[in-house]
Design a protein around this nucleic acid. Sequence first.
DNA 1: AATGAATGAGTTTTCATTCAT
DNA 2: TATGAATGAAAACTCATTCAT
Lengths: 224, 224, 224, 224
Amino acid sequence: MNDSPRMNDKRPARQKRDPEATRRALLGAAIAEFADKGLAGSRVDEIAQRAGVNKQLVYHHFGNKEDLFRAALEQVYGEIRAREQALHLADLPAVAAMERLVGFSFDHLAEHPELVALLNDENRHEARHVKDSPQIQAMHSPLIVMIEETLTRGAREGVFRDDMDAINVYISIAGLAYFFFANNHTLSAIFDTNLDSAREVSRRRRHVIDFVLSALRPVAGATA
Amino acid sequence: MNDSPRMNDKRPARQKRDPEATRRALLGAAIAEFADKGLAGSRVDEIAQRAGVNKQLVYHHFGNKEDLFRAALEQVYGEIRAREQALHLADLPAVAAMERLVGFSFDHLAEHPELVALLNDENRHEARHVKDSPQIQAMHSPLIVMIEETLTRGAREGVFRDDMDAINVYISIAGLAYFFFANNHTLSAIFDTNLDSAREVSRRRRHVIDFVLSALRPVAGATA
Amino acid sequence: MNDSPRMNDKRPARQKRDPEATRRALLGAAIAEFADKGLAGSRVDEIAQRAGVNKQLVYHHFGNKEDLFRAALEQVYGEIRAREQALHLADLPAVAAMERLVGFSFDHLAEHPELVALLNDENRHEARHVKDSPQIQAMHSPLIVMIEETLTRGAREGVFRDDMDAINVYISIAGLAYFFFANNHTLSAIFDTNLDSAREVSRRRRHVIDFVLSALRPVAGATA
Amino acid sequence: MNDSPRMNDKRPARQKRDPEATRRALLGAAIAEFADKGLAGSRVDEIAQRAGVNKQLVYHHFGNKEDLFRAALEQVYGEIRAREQALHLADLPAVAAMERLVGFSFDHLAEHPELVALLNDENRHEARHVKDSPQIQAMHSPLIVMIEETLTRGAREGVFRDDMDAINVYISIAGLAYFFFANNHTLSAIFDTNLDSAREVSRRRRHVIDFVLSALRPVAGATA
DNA sequence: AATGAATGAGTTTTCATTCAT
DNA sequence: TATGAATGAAAACTCATTCAT
């Protein structure tokens, strides 16, 4: 009687006209492609293909390649920020809290290699897209505050040094995991081992937690 | 008194037909360009221009863009390996040796941002060029052995823990500096500071040395 | 009576967005260019210009230069096969049938110098594109069967020898015309005549028909 | 104590400075390369490499690529002309003479595929180099005269028709072999056989001789 | 005579982006 | 919203030829 879709419709089901799904598919494809090839090495064509949609939709939904890159960054930043919010370190004793924090930082990178890849590229571009994104700017990481609180709490408990700068501690925690993942291939090649194996990854995880907690131990003889 | 060529001219100035100089100029330009733009983002044209030579000489001397990238990697690896050889840690007490080592690792990255940039790119390519380069494979880093010896010596002296794996310690030392430099721009943007300033760099340097030495302190109550 | 576009205009004239026409134009231009210059000597630029379209459309529609060459081969093979189908030799007495066949083979080459040129090039490449083209492989020439039938019929009629191999006869028929056209310029230069003139072409045509029919005459004294 | 060459010289013997040998090597390499790739597809570099000499020597000895192509043509024309001179057909009865002539034409092409390849290319260029070469122009083929004499002799002997034009007979003889070799690959692909095998080549040889002699038989009932 | 370096003008191909439907 | 065609600008790489030694 009318021509509403799906009457007795034999055309490919391809779920036409679901712009939100298209957007999501493109964004996922973009993150994967940018992580693989970098901004310069990625191809708009390839992203569209990965998403199973027409190339022009990239422009329709995101404007251009660079804007798509920014959207990809917003996405991966959004994910880590959301998980950081869920850590609830205040519920734990200082040492356990710090262990959870370091473990989380390590695990998130382990599970999200695309974050490492995108950040490398973004830094090559001098954080241009981050600076251009009010959305990312607004996503303040709670980690600095969490670290500060945990360090203070730990110092009060007598289990941590009290002279550590939270930002530097944050950078150290992140760096201990980041470098391992970011340079996994060259390190594996140079050391002629496979640092990508589950065994080496979990070894590294233990080392990092141990290393951080060890570094934060109070200085013997210091009067806290 | 005029500037006609070859008066009694000792400058290198436009020496015609000096293939070795041409090669060097190209290699330097390539390192700079690859560091700035990455392998995919770099332009052979641009590299030739930076080097002040004809574009086709890239192909004449290096084969193609990818081979040039490999040569650039060989160069930067060669430089750090050469400096590593010169550390002579065995001459120092364990703590001082470790401090020199950590300081060197930090300083070399500070002075050679191109190393960070090239390694990021190389890892994106799964260390393909490193694996293809017998030259790099042959440049064994002496650092692992140095770290092992220093850790052992420090344990004997009672100033270091004795349960630390040298490779993981190496990765930690490198990572603490690497992440700071590799992600300097995004970190600066996120924390709304300028981590590139001399002040912040030297703060970071002190933190890293302190952090490592602190982490390596012997475990209280352990019988070394 | 003016030339404003689309009055009641049935001409193809610059019809925008007619991909089929674009393809046809490119294919025609490619055949001409490949015939003139060969695969190696042809320029994609030139082909696009001849077709009056943007150069990149070659890649859009055909993939690359080599695929375009294969498409050109498919086109010229398709044309000759189509004409071969229309010969209907069975309707004629053996001698007349053979005469029509030889005449057709000669005339087709006379009218399609691009076929000679493309085949020369294709043979230089060891028939690589023909082997790669399922389409060409599927276009079985009916000529062998036609020749076989005609020879058999002629033998029965007592006008042809009965000991001739059809494939070799085919190659002979084709060769007698082919060499004349393929080497027309060098032959003209060597013999200091103009074998390209209508007079010489028609002389050759008569000779070829005469030669073939003469060769096929029954062997005197043989018992057919 | 001086540095004159070959004192007690252990350097590679490479027979330096034999310009005539260099020239020959280059010419042979050029014929091979031009036969393989055609004029447009051939690379001066590749020719020099095949010859084992420096690329610049091509220019030194031959001027440029095109002149080298002309020299290659002169060489292959020279070879066939020399062999043609040695046929001595007059010593044989007409039929045997014709058989030797046809056999020779076939065999020379079989043994010299580069002749076919070069002629194809030369015809694509409208015999430009042949016309430019006084040397080739001067190498008059004795074949036309030989054919004429043989035909006349055969007619007198009553074994040949007397109405055949020598040039057309020449073209037919050459064409029957030429097409088989020139199009061997496409014919093999189309007929799904291997016409390059010794068996098929010798079958073809017999066919060609048979075909020509059969065509030349006197017309029955004609009064010679 | 011989060599390797150097060059200018191409040549194929790629790619982000826009157009027409 | 979605599609395939079309485009301009560029990119990697090639190549005949010349230069300096």
